[in-house]
Design a protein around this nucleic acid. Structure first.
Lengths: 208, 208
DNA sequence: GTCTATAACCGGATAGAC
DNA sequence: GTCTATCCGGTTATAGAC
């Protein structure tokens, strides 16, 4: 955020004057449209209309549709990471997962978008394939790190590296799967299910 | 399968002569294309090319693109149900889930297709939304039925209806989520993760 | 930096010939 | 039943005006 070049003038110049605000506004509109129609189904023209600009302006900013997609995904990444749990660690971390998942209920569109893209991008030829893969790798690594911390702190019994991977994969799977079920049926009790899952999982870790 | 009308002639007539074989062949091609490009991304023209017919022929058979999609989903439904576990019940049923999931590894395309469609169709306006919702409802009901059987047989401790729903939702979530992770990273050990999950779940049911 | 206009193309769907 | 020809709307991308 402090990478804005200082000039002799006090006014910010270059691509930062209207550009940054404009860009955020466009990303916002893109999120809305992709969230409603998916990536393949959301047209550049519809996004432009939503944002109140011409479709050519979008292409000017992001190059092509794929650029638009990755911009949105990166923005989403930043937000969810920022919302996340930077202050807790060890077992505490896992206890917070239910509320993190429950928070998704306030931004249905984004969850829908990410779920759709994650599935769409499972094919290696999809524009966002790399991005999604890396996100999952990073996510699994983060969870594994916290589990290792918990083990080191004596909050969980020792495990092999493979066991740790199985555990974090299962937790990730439940989060994705419950999110999908909630999208399909809003009556799904995300927090209740997640709490039951985490409680049982942590108990199993301690009892090992 | 025995619904073919008998005529005075020994030869089958009407829409069943070339029609049925043709139809299966077209559905096969549709599966392949949708599996690779998703629903929105897979074009009727591409499917037609794959099947060696013109795109107009496809529309003639299925009405429109949505008809093509539901035909594929119904076909997939029939196959996976047929593959399924009609001979086991109660706790046995859950013990078989890992191998059922592992079997998906032999038909990557179908898993990819269903995962993509399930996510795409989470929006209420999607053509396949109803189909997917019903499939999930049916699936959850089936799992819940087996769990109730297990409880009745004394293989699991008593639970309330809500607890049962949470349990089957969690199992379904794990299956969906692990499937997605395997699509993104084929090194994922589906069977190992599922086995660990089912073992722990069943143990928790018995210990309650 | 942003917009309009336009080119070149692809998508689903229909009409009519064979 | 299947094909060719065609319509119409949407998509990316570029060129150039303001």
């Amino acid at each position: 955020m402090s990478g804005i070049p200082e000039t002799t003038s006090t006014r910010a110049r270059g691509p930062y004057r209207t550009g940054r605000l404009r860009r955020e506004q466009l990303i916002e509109a893109t999120m809305a449209v992709f969230a409603e129609h998916g990536y393949a189904g959301g047209s550049i023209r519809a996004i432009a209309e939503q944002a109140g600009v011409s479709h050519a302006t979008l292409i000017q900013h992001f190059g092509n549709k794929e650029g638009l997609l990755t911009a949105v995904l990166e923005e989403w990444d930043l937000r969810t990471v920022a919302d996340g749990l930077s202050d807790v660690s060890g077992i505490e971390y896992f206890g917070r997962l239910p509320e993190v998942m429950a928070a998704h209920q306030h931004s249905r569109g984004l969850l829908e978008l990410f779920t759709t893209i994650a599935a769409e991008a499972s094919g290696p030829s999809h524009p966002a394939h790399r991005f999604i893969r890396r996100r999952y790798e990073k996510n699994l690594a983060t969870l594994a790190g916290h589990l290792r911390e918990a083990i080191a702190a004596g909050e969980a019994a020792p495990m092999t590296g493979e066991q740790i991977m199985v555990e974090v994969r299962l937790l990730t799977a439940v989060m994705d799967g419950i999110g999908l079920q909630w999208l399909l049926d809003p009556a799904t009790d995300i927090e209740g299910a997640m709490t039951a899952c985490v409680d049982r999982t942590v108990a199993a870790w301690q009892a090992r």
